[in-house]
């Protein structure tokens, strides 16, 4: 289990968290490459169905930030 890395799907608000993820890049911060970002126009766009779909696809975690 020690090598196990969760696969994370994240839904990020275009106006805040997505921009923050961009800034993390500008600041050359490093984080593990096991996350896939889907840009949404606002965290309010997030539907429970998206969580379920992502989990169903096999994601180990879903992260919504906005």
């Amino acid at each position: 289990m020690s090598d196990w890395e969760p696969k994370i799907v994240s839904f990020l608000c275009n106006w805040c968290s997505y921009g923050a993820a961009d800034l993390a890049g500008v600041g050359r911060m490093e984080y593990p490459p096991n996350i896939r970002v889907i840009r949404i126009p606002c965290a309010g766009r997030m539907s429970a169905k998206f969580f379920l779909a992502a989990l169903r696809q096999g994601a180990d975690g879903v992260w919504v930030s906005g």
Binding site: A21, D22, L23, A24, G25, V26, R28, M29, E30, Y31, P32, P33, N34, R36, V37, R39
Partner: peptide, 21 residues
């Protein structure tokens, strides 16, 4: 597809996984 700010810039020590991403 954001492959710089959210990929190459943050995974520079992991080129293989960055390419996969």
């Amino acid at each position: 597809a954001n492959i710089r700010n959210q990929d190459s810039w943050v995974h520079k020590n992991n080129p293989e996984l960055a390419t996969q991403k």
